[in-house]
Structures are given as structure tokens and as C-alpha cells.
Design a protein around this nucleic acid. Sequence first.
DNA 1: CGTCCGCTTGACTCAGATCAAACTTGGTGG
DNA 2: CCACCAAGTTTGATCTGAGTCAAGCGGACG
Lengths: 175, 175
Amino acid sequence: MIKIMLEHLGNLHQIRRSFRQDQYLFHRDDRVKSMFLIETGTAQLIRHHPNGSAVVLQRAIPDSILAEASLFTPKYHCDAIATSPVVARLISRTAMQQLFYTSHDFAKAWAVHLAGEVRDARLRAEILTLKTVAERLDAWLADNGHLPEKGSWKAIAQEIGTSPEALYREIARRK
Amino acid sequence: MIKIMLEHLGNLHQIRRSFRQDQYLFHRDDRVKSMFLIETGTAQLIRHHPNGSAVVLQRAIPDSILAEASLFTPKYHCDAIATSPVVARLISRTAMQQLFYTSHDFAKAWAVHLAGEVRDARLRAEILTLKTVAERLDAWLADNGHLPEKGSWKAIAQEIGTSPEALYREIARRK
DNA sequence: CGTCCGCTTGACTCAGATCAAACTTGGTGG
DNA sequence: CCACCAAGTTTGATCTGAGTCAAGCGGACG
């Protein structure tokens, strides 16, 4: 989240709500009344399909906004579920729309934020089209600079779409 | 591209330019003077890396806007190259910014457009994390409804990140 | 009629998923 | 302080899906 957005949002009417793990934040076809700003915990946007399978559309971590598209959509078109205990700020959708229309700063910040999300998602998609773990790790490193401390390698494996073991082996192969 | 955006853009100062295949539309660190609306042909946004590799950030087809992020960025942070002969409309960036600030309709359309791009890119990324061709095809079908006519299956293979042969075999396995 | 392109099918090979077991590390509680 | 547990990491062995190369098919089009 961008600082200027948070500053603007601080002035809007909002409430804080907690969700247990596996609790739904909202369901598909619910009317959109609030925007969700995750403060702690993680949540997922999930699209369910008739055949029973589900696809994850977004993984929201602290300081990210869930379902940015819902700002201008009357109903949600997917479900949101807490993947860990979550505390979220619920911000009135109409107030936020009003802010978008009246504050050039906020509108610009919102557009910049969305453009950044587009870039990130596209980059991730392109990394995932690479065939080998070595290529994916190279592309990830090219964008992130360096490997983080141990402890979080598993998350990177998830992000670049490989098994943890495959990533550990590739890292070991390089020193 | 959304109709309302095209209507608004029609009133802005713009010129039409052609690019040969493999010609660059712009380079990294160029000052952003215009937004590119592709009319015919295809172009790619590419990030080059010191180690020689390159990652594709966006594939732009007719009626799509190249590098949406550049509307509020002074310099490009990647290269754009024509992957086929391209005709593009170049729209003044400052005029488009002005339009964004003065027209609520346009600002909203821009935000809706970006949110859609976020959704599409995230969906594609999630499809690419699935391991088998069968799962990827299922997820693609769940979002697109049905297979198109022959002739374009190869493009789908590219989209879901598999070899054409693997996709053909999966399709054959299903009838 | 020949060429191109997408589709089809076969055979081979291999990167990585998976399962399994051991070892680090940090934190918790007795 | 130590036993114990949970996560992440390391390493080994096995198996399989799909990438690749290759050869043939069929329709579109000049």
C-alpha cells in the first residue's frame, strides 16, 4: 500500500473486524459495501468452479487491499477466505469512491497502485512460463536482487511455482 | 479496451505511427511523452537483465494499451518491441493525465480497466502454478467456457504455458 | 499444384514432483 | 537447564508428466 493512500483513507469512516482462520470475509454475489484493508494475517480471493476445483486469484498479506476491482463493482465475483486469523479495516465503498472522484492525489495513487499490481502479476506469470527451476530463480533474482535469509525460501518456492526441495537443490548447486 | 475510454481518447491530440517488426517502440529510461494504443499487430514489453536474459512483462494485442503504468511515470522502466508490424496511436501523456483529472467517467474507466488487467494477470499466474496440463486446461475452460475452433489451440498452449503437443494430446484424451 | 501452418501421433529423455528420513534451529514449558 | 516440539532445510531414491525431436496428415491459399 502506498503511503498517500493510507493517509487519505485514515480520514474515512471505517471499522476494524477480526476473522477466524477459514472464515469467509465475503461471498460471491454479496453486495459490495466495504473495501477490505488487511492489517494482520493473510486472506485469499478464490473462484470456485462447478466441477469442484478452485483457483486462487489473489493472496492478500498485511497492508494490501482485497479485491481492488470491487471499488467499482456492485457485487463480488468471487469468494474471500482467511487463511490465517485476520484483522481487517473495512472502509465504506461509497466514501472511497467519493474520495476517488474528489481527490486527484488519491485517484492518481489508486491508479499507480493498480498499475504496480498489474506489473507484479504479469511478471510472476512470465516467470512461471519458464521451464526450469534455474531459469525461474534467475528471473526472480533479477527482480529482487538477492536471496533473503533462510527461513523464507519455502515461500519463494511457492511464488515461483516449484517444490521446496527443487529450490533448495538449485540454491545448493550454486555455492 | 473499454468503449468509454476510446470515446474520450478520440478527442485528444494524437498521431498514428507504424513500426516494422523488431523495431523498438520505446526504450528503457526514455522520457514518457505518449501513451501507445495498439491498432494492428502485436508488441511486447521486455525487461532486459545484466546476465543477458529477458523477461516479457506484457504482450499487447490490437486495442490494448502498452505500459499502462507509464501514465504516471516520467520514464519507462522497460523496453517495448514490435513482434509483428505494428500500427499504433500515440496519445499525449499530459493530455491523458489532464483527462484523468477532469473526467470522472474516464478516471473510473481507467481504474476499472486496470483492475481487470490485474485480475487477468493473476488468474493466468495461478493457472501456471498448476502442475499438469489437464488441471491447467480445466482452469482455463472454467474461465473461458469452451474451446475455440481448431486453428487457435496453439495460442492457448502458449497462454497456459505448455507445449502445443501436450495440449493436443490432452484435448484428444477427452473426446 | 506446391507451400505453409496448424494439427496429430510416436518414441525418447529428463527435470522435477513426491515420498522418506535425518538434521538444524528456535521456542515452550516443566 | 533440558526434553520436546514444530518448521524449515538438507539429501537420497524413485517415478512420471511433459518437453523435444521427428514424421506424417489436411486444409487454406497463392
